[in-house]
């Protein structure tokens, strides 16, 4: 099965072309340009160098979030556009799961007998002091999901690792471009920083996660492919706004009422 996969959820845009588990071609770029400029040329590159045309693709895949708002939209819209009218299935993959796929494959290769199995903690910067994250553990070279994708502050992530009996004491493999910022707030001595190549989402593993989803019957039509923004829960937003103060009502020059915080 030929899969075209792409990712644009974080600072890097990337695309890969796979025949099942065999990587045909892959390309990525991190140059600060917006993904609207970089993603389509990358897709064109992997198709051309792979010698495959769009009409030969059996499954389109992308990361569908969480991540950058515009990045998620660009990836999902690109795949929807490529698949539109072709009747080819699409699969949206969690960006965190794609990161965990790569970490699980490496954990399986380096597993030592008798050691506690590591946890896999992908981290993407969600801003406002939060990280998009989920917990996985390696299971035969694949990631086994332990928690749902969430936007959490570093204190909550740290508490979960330190206080939950299921996770206490186990080494933690970090991955994702939020790992360096999160590390100082995580339990000391247990967390392993990722090598540079595991900071970024691999489009190869987006393809592998998409193939797994497809085999479970979880691929969808292009119309049903949706982004997952994973916004900060309303309760948390309310709390943040309360912390800023109720504000004082003021009237601007157009006569409508606006609210300005007490500074």
């Amino acid at each position: 099965m030929t899969v075209l996969a792409c990712d644009s959820c974080s600072g890097t845009a990337s695309a890969a072309l796979c025949d099942g588990s065999r990587l045909i071609s892959e390309a990525s770029v991190t140059n600060g340009n917006t993904h609207t400029e970089t993603l389509m040329p990358l897709i064109e590159t992997v198709l051309r160098t792979g010698g495959v045309s769009v009409s030969e693709i059996d499954l389109f895949a992308c990361t569908s979030g969480p991540g950058s708002f515009t990045g998620v939209r660009i990836g999902v819209a690109t795949v929807k556009g490529l698949a539109l009218g072709r009747g080819v299935p699409c699969a949206g993959v969690s960006s965190l799961e794609a990161l965990a796929y790569a970490a699980a494959a490496e954990a399986a290769a380096s597993a030592a007998a008798g050691c506690l199995p590591p946890l896999i903690l992908p981290l993407l910067d969600a801003r406002r002091g939060q990280f998009y994250t989920a917990l996985f553990e390696p299971d035969g070279g694949l990631p086994l999901r332990l928690t749902d994708d969430e936007a959490l502050d570093i204190g909550k992530i740290s508490s979960m690792l330190a206080e939950d009996g299921r996770y206490a004491g186990r080494p933690v493999l970090l991955c994702g471009d939020g790992a360096a910022a999160a590390l100082p707030g995580l339990p000391a001595g247990r967390c392993v920083m990722p090598p540079p190549h595991r900071s970024f989402i691999s489009p190869y593993y987006v393809a592998q996660a998409a193939l797994a989803a497809h085999s479970r019957g979880q691929s969808v039509t292009d119309a049903a492919l949706l982004p997952s923004y994973l916004r900060i829960p309303q309760a948390e937003r309310d709390r943040l706004e309360k912390l800023k103060g109720p504000g004082t009502a003021g009237t601007n020059t157009e006569g409508t009422t606006s609210t300005e915080a007490n500074k």
């Binding site: 600060g32 950058s68 708002f69 515009t70 990045g71 969600a126 801003r127 406002r128 943040l240 706004e241 800023k244 504000g247 003021g250 601007n252 606006s258 609210t259 300005e260 915080a261």
Partner: peptide, 21 residues
């Protein structure tokens, strides 16, 4: 929230009272 923080961006915001939070 996709605008880079710190020295990688400069933001000039009119009507900032609407996004005080």
């Amino acid at each position: 929230y996709d605008i880079p923080e710190g020295r990688d961006s400069a933001v000039l915001c009119e009507w900032p009272e609407k996004i005080y939070f």
